[in-house]
Design a protein around this nucleic acid. Structure first.
Lengths: 335, 335
DNA sequence: GTGAAAGCGCTAACAA
DNA sequence: TTGTTAGCGCTTTCAC
């Protein structure tokens, strides 16, 4: 990489002249500016990012800590973050906590050394289970703002972007009740997560508000054999005619299993799941889905963070932004 | 963040003494080292990464340019890269080209300003179609090594990690022929990509080597209605009893559509697709799959790059590493 | 055993 | 209009 120094030498002017010329300072003569710019162009000069960061004490880089990049929802949020960040001239450094508290702490530590100006993260499963938040608080106290999305730590004062999980499953369950479904089950493989709990509660509330209904819940471990679990569940709980699923894959499997067991979807059984478009399209009939607008969540998180970073002096109150889900009627439900 | 300067002031010693003490230099007295370390600990001192990078002229950061983070395979490679990089103390800056040549160029440009020490990337679709490679060559000539994976530009001299796509579909097709399938079709929604072409050729070769077989190919646009396309395809080409799919989602849809059309899988029709475990589990029966070992690919790419970066002086020959696919027999084929 | 000084690449206040 | 200088945080050579 060419440096100002080299350009200056070749042009027989001082470094600061070159710097000013390239930054369109009024101070420098037209002729000089022209000469400098031409040479810079020729050598494809780019100001060294590291030197700039050191000088200006900010990196224009956001640290993103994601629990699981293979989770489609989280990947999509990352996409939204990246796009919004790029729009504002920010880069993102991605760390994957792999749902581990230790790795999460480590990543936070590692990047809090001047590598980034702030963080966007979703809390790791282990962290949520153990309910640890000190590492977040410490980072914030060091002057690095955090924005949390989806899985948030309520005890930490910071900006947050969340989904109306509770309302979403509540409404989804209501809609199945309106379809006159009699036995509505809830399937989840994320019960340990804050969002998993909220989704379950939304379902429970809708069920308990209606006499003649009672909760039927299947909780699975993410890595276990879902097909078998769902099959036994269907066999054990005869006549289930409605399913609300907290994730996408179990919803797809539920549809396929129902068909396999000789049921017609949605004639005999309706299925609703949290899902993105691409996954909803995998089943026949297509899955009626609760969409979370992951990209919007990512974009919002990035906006909140960038806004906070650019106004570090003012002490803005922390915001919690709720991105509403939408209900996308496809073919796995009656209405 | 505390700096050496502040520590030095508080301890009434010089900056260099503090620096040396923290780096366990032999020069510094035991007592001093102890005092320094204690205060550093107290203030949670971390050496400023940016200053280090400037000083040492390397960032310990890898730029990763991914065409599409929502592609499960690519996301998984990213996971592999991140893990391997972290193991060696490297961070990754992620850019998403969104399959666009322009964005790819831009990202390369943007990070080639000292932000990263090298790149790992998979070539964007548009880039492959237009067959542009100058931006890669330019980056390399600026002293920033590139490692390409999966979708590579053959005209660029750099390390590469690829999959044995050709052999994989060739063998998959053979295995269907051995099952005594009579009409074997190939379904692809990635025909524009280098890997898509290779996969198709592998299939074609196997078919042409056997008289009594002829190629039946369905090419789809990624964003169009795959369910409808596959349905028409099945209806138009009666008696298809074997499917090799270049991607995972069309394989899953093919299984579901076959069932929907009254066929038994795998009794009446076998389906094989490129797929990861999690997606293969979505269909009933589970998809027999060609696994690409995405994480291994990512890890290999990271290793190649780190190795090259750490031996920039020596002029090592470029390597192309082939990560072999494995054939995972599940329930959508007879054998 | 400790400190002063230079230098990585850049910007900006100040001097000429 | 142009140049000199200091300084961002750190390491390292060379004096003391």
């Amino acid at each position: 990489m060419v440096t100002l120094k080299q350009l200056a030498k070749e042009l027989n002017v001082s470094i600061s002249t070159v710097s000013k010329a390239l930054n369109n300072s009024e101070e420098i003569g037209e002729e000089t500016v022209k000469r400098v710019k031409e040479l810079a162009q020729l050598y494809n000069y780019k100001p060294n990012k590291v030197a700039l960061s050191l000088k200006q004490n900010k990196t224009k880089t956001i640290g993103v800590i994601i629990p699981d990049i293979l989770n489609h929802f989280l990947a999509k949020v990352l996409f939204g973050i990246e796009r919004e960040a790029a729009l504002h001239g920010y880069n993102i450094i991605t760390c994957i906590s792999n749902e581990s508290l230790e790795k999460e702490k480590e990543s936070l530590q590692l990047l809090a050394n001047g590598s980034v100006d702030g963080f966007i993260l979703s809390v790791a499963k282990e962290t949520q289970i153990k309910n640890e938040v000190d590492h977040f608080k410490k980072t914030i106290s060091e002057g690095l703002p955090i924005v949390m999305f989806d899985r948030v730590a309520h005890d930490v004062m910071c900006d947050k972007v969340i989904v109306d999980d509770f309302d979403a499953t509540y409404n989804a369950t209501l809609s199945l009740i309106e379809e006159k479904r009699k036995k509505i089950a809830f399937i989840s493989n994320i019960e340990e997560l804050s969002v998993g709990k909220l989704r379950e509660r939304g379902y429970i509330k809708a069920i308990l508000e209606h006499t003649a209904y009672e909760p039927i819940v299947l909780k699975m471990n993410r890595n276990k054999d879902s097909q078998q679990k769902i099959k036994s569940f269907f066999k054990k709980n005869k006549d289930i005619d409605g399913v609300v699923s907290a994730d996408s894959s179990s919803a797809i499997i539920a549809i396929n299993m129902a068909i396999k067991l000789g049921l017609k979807v949605p004639k005999d059984i309706s299925v609703i799941g949290f899902s993105s478009k691409s996954v909803s399209n995998l089943s026949i009939p297509r899955l009626t889905a609760i969409r979370q607008h992951a990209k919007v969540i990512g974009a919002n998180a990035a906006q909140l963070l960038i806004n906070r970073m650019q106004n570090m002096s003012e002490n803005i109150d922390v915001k919690t932004k709720i991105v509403k889900t939408s209900f996308v009627k496809r073919k796995s439900t009656l209405r």
